[in-house]
Simulated assay, not measured.
Amino acid sequence: MPASEDGSKARIVAPATIAEGDVGYAVDGPVALITLDRPSAHNALTIKMIRRLAEATDAARQDDDVRAIVLTGAGEKAFSAGGDLGELIPRLTRGELDILIPDPSKRFFSDVFKPVIAAVNGLCLAGGLEILLGTDIRIAADHAIFGVPEVRWGLVPGGGTHVRLPQQIPWAIAMRLLLTGDHLDAGTAALHGLVTEVVPAAAVRERAFEVARGISRNAPVAVRTAKEIAVRALGNESRFALELALNERVLRTDDAVEGPRAFVEKRSPIYRNR
Results as ranks from 00 to 15, higher is better:
Val13Pro: 01
Ala14Leu: 12
Ala16Leu: 12
Gly24Gln: 03
Pro30Val: 05
Leu33Phe: 01
Leu33Ile: 01
Arg38His: 13
His42Lys: 14
Ile50Lys: 11
Leu53Trp: 05
Ala54Asn: 11
Asp65Tyr: 01
Arg67Glu: 12
Leu71Gln: 05
Glu76Pro: 00
Glu76Tyr: 09
Ser80His: 03
Leu88Glu: 02
Pro90Asp: 07
Pro90Ile: 08
Asp98Leu: 10
Pro102Ala: 13
Ser105Asn: 12
Ser105Arg: 15
Lys106Ile: 01
Phe109Pro: 06
Ser110Trp: 06
Val112Asp: 01
Pro115Ile: 10
Val116Trp: 03
Ile117Trp: 03
Asn121Trp: 01
Leu132Lys: 09
Ile137Met: 07
Ala141Asp: 15
Pro149Trp: 07
Val151Pro: 11
Leu155Cys: 04
Gly159Pro: 07
Gly160Leu: 08
Gly160Ser: 08
Thr161Trp: 01
His162Glu: 14
Ile169Tyr: 02
Pro170Ile: 10
Trp171Asn: 13
Leu177Met: 15
Leu177Ile: 15
Thr180Arg: 11
Thr180Met: 07
Gly181Asn: 09
Thr188Asn: 10
Thr196Cys: 02
Glu197Trp: 02
Val198Leu: 05
Val198Cys: 06
Arg205Phe: 00
Glu206Lys: 12
Gly214Gln: 14
Val223Leu: 07
Val231Asn: 01
Ala233Glu: 14
Phe240Tyr: 15
Leu242Ala: 14
Leu246Gly: 00
Asn247Pro: 00
Glu248Asn: 12
Val250Trp: 06
Asp254Gln: 13
Pro260Phe: 03
Arg261Thr: 15
Pro269Asp: 05
